[in-house]
């Protein structure tokens, strides 16, 4: 019982850092939260906010500059860019969260196994991770998409897989540290098996680096998926995906710069929002991670 008490105490101490008061005192977290709330709201109320159907083509109103009717202008199919950017938020959020979830899930499994069992398992898994980390992210993602076939879902899976090694690294480090702690030793001494040790004692104590890592990478996930769509390996038309909107707009940079500018800004703002939240959480929960990306 004493052991369990210690664990509870440690866990609650870490999570106590997440108190609302401390969060709202942190300026970058607040800024990030405001931005992300805005993006989430845009995604949630897209049908109400968007003045036009995002995929409706109108060859009579092509390449119109921003105006009152079309605040962000129209693209070469005559589609309203403002409406497309708003609907694009839905895709960006889903992509960010799903890809991040995949990366976190796979990364935690690999990291825990590697860190907890150590020795050969660790050596094998970490060398594999090293190899994967040596690849440029986008190249690796393109290979995965080439194998799975181009689609938005496969792009999310690809990006998730590509970011798995980073999670695995961080989780392994945390596990290595936690498993040497006295309370783990104590639990082992009273006869806890590996599964119980992991689930009850190790995992809860590595939660904060995982949370920090996850919020910090959401932004990258969104950028990378947009990159895949930009290359024609992600969202298929006419999906209003920011990356593919950028790709279309690229050829009109001189004549109709608004086509690429607004989805580009949307990506920028969303990613900054998530990164600010991530920075804030990191400062509060796990200052040691600073600078580790």
């Amino acid at each position: 019982m004493a052991t369990a008490g210690t664990v509870a105490l440690r866990t609650s101490r870490r999570l106590a850092a997440l108190s609302w008061r401390r969060l709202f005192a942190h300026s970058s977290f607040v800024a990030g939260a405001i931005i992300v709330t805005g993006v989430v709201a845009a995604a949630a109320f897209a049908p109400a906010l968007a003045p036009f159907d995002p995929i409706e083509q109108a060859f009579t109103s092509q390449l119109l500059a921003p105006s009152r009717a079309h605040p962000f202008g129209t693209d070469e199919f005559g589609r309203d860019i403002f409406s497309r950017v708003i609907y694009g938020a839905r895709i960006a959020l889903v992509v960010g969260v799903v890809a991040d979830g995949i990366a976190a899930l796979l990364g935690v499994v690999l990291g825990v196994v590697s860190g907890y069992f150590g020795r050969r398992v660790d050596a094998f898994l970490m060398r594999t991770v090293d190899v994967l980390l040596a690849f440029p992210y986008l190249l690796l993602a393109m290979i995965v998409v080439a194998i799975l076939g181009p689609s938005l879902i496969n792009a999310m899976i690809a990006i998730g897989i590509v970011y798995t090694p980073q999670f695995a690294r961080v989780v392994r480090g945390a596990v290595l540290q936690v498993k040497e702690e006295d309370f783990v030793e104590a639990a082992r001494a009273v006869g806890a098996g590996s599964l119980r040790l992991l689930a009850r004692h190790v995992l809860p104590n590595i939660l904060s680096p995982i949370i920090v890592m996850a919020t910090l990478t959401v932004g990258f996930m969104i950028v990378e998926t947009a990159g895949l769509s930009f290359l024609g390996l992600g969202a298929s038309p006419p999906t209003p995906e920011w990356g593919s909107m950028l790709a279309t707009g690229r050829s009109f940079m001189l004549t109709a710069p608004w086509i690429a500018t607004f989805p580009g800004l949307a990506i920028l703002i969303t990613v900054v929002g998530f990164n600010l939240i991530g920075d804030g959480l990191r400062d509060l929960l796990d200052p040691r991670l600073r600078g580790s990306r």
Binding site: I55, E56, Q57, E76, F77, G232, P237, P238, T248
Partner: peptide, 10 residues
């Protein structure tokens, strides 16, 4: 081909 495809799709 992609742009033509998108227009026809619509």
């Amino acid at each position: 081909g992609a742009k033509l495809g998108e227009a026809v799709q619509s």
